[in-house]
Amino acid sequence: MISGRTLAQGAGCECKMSPDFLKAVSLCHLSKGDYDALGLCEGKNVQLKNEFGQVVLAPKVDAGLRQGMVFIPMGPWANVLVGPDTGGCGTPQFKGIEVEVEATDASVLEIRDLFRGLRRAQT
């Protein structure tokens, strides 16, 4: 898994509580091959999981990706899968992370829900 900037993410990143930001960022880009192999279709989502957490995202076919690689626009959804270790240099490894991907009927969490449950979060 790699995470990074997209145009839509950048245009929405000063406006994170809006539905547009959710749409632009809670995405999992993957190759057509992986999309088909996972049996995805309109309305289905993907669940990504690793030792750090799990997150549900909407799949999006990206012709630039090779099979076996997913790209998530940078932001709170992608960061659920990023570990805190900085390897002594202060910067976590936001790219090149192993994740398991499967199809799911679960829905994508809204931004407020993503932060609910943290101690000081609004209820």
């Binding site: 805190p84 976590p92 931004i111 943290l118 979060a121």
Partner: peptide, 27 residues
């Protein structure tokens, strides 16, 4: 920040200075 760092941040008092509401506001 990675999720674990955000969880740690939510455990301490946070002061936010920003023009806009964003997830940091929530904690």
């Amino acid at each position: 920040f990675p999720r674990a760092a955000v969880e740690a941040l939510a455990k301490i008092p946070v002061i936010q200075i920003d023009p806009y509401e964003n997830p940091t506001t929530l904690i």
